[in-house]
Simulated scan of single mutants.
Amino acid sequence: MSPDFHIPYVLPTALLAIALVFKFPTLLRAWRDPDVRATMILLACATAVLVVITPVNIHRLNVWTGIPNIAAPWAYSFLTAFCATGLTMIMRWREPPSARRHRRMIAIYWIYAGIIAALWGTFLLADVPEPRIYDLDTYYATTLWMREHTLLYLLAHMVSSLIAAYMLWKWFPQVTHRWLKTGVVFLQLGYASGLVFDAAKLIAVGARWTGNNLDWLSTKAAPPFALLEAILVALGFIVPQAAPFLQKWGREQAEYLRLRPLWRTVRVVQPAAATVRIGFWAPLDLRLTQRQQRIHDALRFLAPYFDPDGYHDAYTAALAENSEQRARGIAGAIAIQAATDAYRRKAPHTTSDQPPQIGPSVTDHLEAIGRALYRSRALDRIRSQVTSTGSVTAHA
């Protein structure tokens, strides 16, 4: 490969590193979960491969260690561990826990651990004094032990890709979960990219054995497919786990924000007991639960100050020009604002010993009320209509 030819290593490496960082808190919370641990190992290996094979890092390893081409066994060891973890992850997805599955997974780890040991053994036996940053595989394609070193990692990678692709192909028709199906598609594309990488490398190495030169297949055509495989396979394993979480987080975040104006409106009501302060870094579901509870508690205290007739009049006026859901939100917002004003004045709407509860016509539409509170002009218009209608009725 020409020294001027650079593959964009930074972006995929950064994406994998970010995924690793975001997954780390999950590991701390659920480190006993084998699926979580396996995902972390897979992400770590994929990230490590991309870090090591970056040309500048290959040069640094050569200089720091004083051992030419030491990056090769490092990168290929991480790649081999990546292959083993990928195969066992697919087995975890496809098969329920069993002694047979456990034995097969242990066998895979031992086989690939043996391959890693053989990679280091063949490298130490090989005579590779000339540092090669871009064309190591083809430059030493006919060198004793380095030839075996190269074939070992390529064949191990190819076999794992073929087995993984076959298992996924057989399993795909049975997958019904949307995000899991998406993950399987990413994995199939990723392993297909890996097979293209292997084929290009093997053809280039084989060409050297026959006295020909097809190095461009190894140095220019193959590396982009290696990067693509790392990204797609990592996405394939991350998406089924991360997507449902992100979907739930998005719903909760939207609800949390929609309830904010309503929460601010009812903060005038003093709680019966001091509330526990939860910081910004607390889990979102906990903060959402506290906000919902705070609103429901405030509505309970506002019940004596709530005017059902005022709510009904506002709802009737709003329904004339809005959908039912939006009209419920507008009417609830107006009625709650009026109740908080009455609360400040200590002027309850009823003096009954058993104050009425604010009913489901309000409590079932809290998000709509929160959205309506963002639209002060619409509230003022409906409030004016209700006031003018009430004045006309009273005068009549």
Score class of each variant (00 low, 15 high):
Pro8Phe: 07
Thr13Gln: 14
Phe24Cys: 09
Asp35Met: 11
Leu43Pro: 12
Ala44Cys: 10
Ala46Val: 07
Pro55Gly: 04
His59Val: 11
Ile67His: 09
Ala71Gly: 13
Pro73Cys: 03
Trp74Pro: 05
Tyr76Pro: 05
Gly86Cys: 04
Trp93Arg: 14
Pro97His: 01
Ala117Met: 12
Trp120Gln: 02
Thr122Trp: 15
Pro131His: 05
Ile133Lys: 09
Tyr140Lys: 05
Thr150Cys: 10
Leu152His: 01
Leu154Ala: 03
Leu155Ser: 06
Tyr166Asn: 10
Met167Glu: 13
Val175Asn: 06
Thr182Pro: 04
Leu189Ser: 05
Gly190Val: 03
Gly194Met: 14
Leu202Thr: 10
Ala221Pro: 06
Phe225Ala: 08
Ile231Phe: 09
Leu232Gln: 01
Pro240Phe: 03
Gln241Leu: 12
Phe245Glu: 11
Phe245Gly: 11
Leu246Tyr: 06
Lys248Pro: 03
Trp249Tyr: 12
Glu255Lys: 12
Tyr256Pro: 06
Arg267Lys: 13
Val269Tyr: 04
Gln270Pro: 07
Ala274Thr: 15
Thr275Glu: 15
Leu288Glu: 09
Ile295Gly: 03
Tyr311Cys: 01
Ala320Tyr: 07
Ala320Met: 11
Arg328Cys: 02
Ala331Arg: 00
Ala342Ser: 14
Tyr343Gln: 01
Thr350Asn: 00
Arg371Leu: 07
Arg375His: 10
Ile382Ser: 04
Arg383Trp: 05
Gln385Cys: 04
Thr389Cys: 07
Ala394Met: 10
